[in-house]
């Protein structure tokens, strides 16, 4: 393991903590993604990975590179901002697609449109 640069002990503990928090939240999200029975419940599971899963690993990377290169490294925050902005877009589009398909099949578990529109 010679490729890991030595950093102070408190830094290493912080990096390890945030890494493990992020990774375990991602794993829990994936497990929930497999276990939940319906599509609309399943869209909640990946948000664990995209909120604190990403956040934890981003923080760990920021602390590690800042300490090991002796200067402020915060470009990881770009990934965080990017994912925070894009996840709602993908989930919303997917949910609307699913609603559209379920309504087209007259699935009774899905609420119908608020008003009867024909212009869509």
């Amino acid at each position: 393991m010679g490729f890991v640069v030595d950093i102070p002990l408190w830094g290493a503990i912080a990096v390890a903590f945030f890494l493990l928090v992020g990774a375990s939240l991602t794993l829990i999200g994936a497990i929930g993604f497999l276990r939940l029975p319906t599509f609309y419940e399943r869209i909640h599971a990946p948000t664990l990975g995209t909120s604190w899963g990403i956040g934890g690993i981003m923080l760990a990377s920021m602390i590690y590179f800042t300490l090991s290169s002796q200067r402020l490294v915060i470009h990881e925050i770009l990934i965080g901002i990017f994912v925070t902005i894009t996840t709602p877009v993908t989930l919303m589009l997917l949910a609307r697609a699913a609603l559209h398909r379920d309504r087209a099949e007259n699935d009774l578990n899905v609420p119908s449109k608020f008003r009867n529109e024909q212009d869509d």
């Binding site: 609309y40 909640h44 948000t47 925070t84 709602p88 989930l91 919303m92 609603l99 608020f114 008003r115």
Partner: peptide, 19 residues
């Protein structure tokens, strides 16, 4: 929408601008 979707446990499905 971003707040509600990125807090796990709630998801924004669709918004109706008329209602």
């Amino acid at each position: 929408a971003i707040i509600l979707t990125s807090t796990p446990g709630s998801a924004w499905l669709e918004y109706d601008p008329h209602d």
